[in-house]
Amino acid sequence: MDTLTRRLTRAAIWSADGVQVREVALPDPGPGELVVRVRLATVCGSDLHTVSGRRPAPSPSILGHEAVGHVVAAGPGAEQEIGDRIVWSVTAACGRCARCRRGFTAKCEQVRKVGHEAFTGDWPLSGGYAEHILLPAGVTTVPVPDSVPDAVAAPAGCATATVMAVLEAAGDMAGRRVLICGAGMLGVTAVGASTERGARVEISDPHPQRRELASRFGAGPDTGGPVDIALDFSGSSTAVAAALSRIDLGGTLVLAGSVTPGPTVALDPEAVVRGWLTITGVHNYEPRHLVRAVEFLTRTHRTLPWNELVAAPVELTAIGTVLAPTPRNVLRASIAP
Rank of each mutant, 00 (worst) to 15 (best):
M1T: 10
R6K: 12
R6W: 11
R6N: 13
R10K: 12
A12M: 10
A12N: 10
D17K: 13
Q20R: 15
V21E: 13
E23P: 11
E23T: 10
V24Q: 15
G30P: 03
V36D: 02
R39F: 01
R39C: 03
R39G: 02
C44H: 02
R54D: 14
R55N: 07
A57E: 11
H70M: 04
V72M: 03
A74T: 00
G77K: 02
A78Q: 08
E79T: 15
E79I: 11
Q80R: 06
I82A: 07
D84P: 02
R85M: 09
A92H: 08
C94I: 06
R96G: 12
C97N: 01
C100H: 07
F104Q: 06
K107P: 01
K107M: 10
K107Y: 12
K113M: 15
G115D: 09
H116D: 12
E117D: 12
A118M: 13
W123D: 09
S126E: 08
G128T: 08
Y129S: 04
E131W: 11
L135V: 07
A137R: 04
T140L: 00
T141V: 15
V142N: 00
D150Q: 01
A151W: 05
V152T: 10
P155E: 04
A156H: 02
A159V: 06
A161I: 00
L167A: 00
A169S: 02
A174T: 15
G175H: 13
G175N: 11
G175S: 09
R177Q: 14
L179A: 11
G182N: 05
L186K: 02
V191A: 07
R200H: 14
I203P: 00
I203T: 04
D205P: 02
D205Q: 08
D205G: 04
Q209L: 14
Q209K: 09
L213Q: 01
G218Q: 12
G220Q: 09
P221Q: 08
D222L: 05
D222R: 06
G225D: 14
P226S: 13
V227N: 08
F233E: 04
F233H: 08
S236M: 12
S237H: 11
R246T: 05
R246E: 09
G250Q: 07
G251R: 00
G251N: 05
L253G: 06
V254F: 10
A256H: 01
V259Q: 01
A266M: 10
A266D: 15
W276F: 14
T278V: 14
N284M: 04
H289R: 00
V291P: 01
V294C: 05
L297T: 00
H301A: 05
R302I: 08
T303E: 14
L304M: 07
L304A: 05
P305M: 04
N307S: 13
E308A: 15
E308I: 07
L309R: 03
V310D: 08
A311N: 06
A311M: 04
P313K: 03
E315Y: 05
L316C: 10
G320N: 14
P325H: 13
T326Y: 09
P327V: 12
P327K: 09
N329H: 15
N329D: 15
L331H: 03
A336H: 08
A336S: 11
A336P: 02
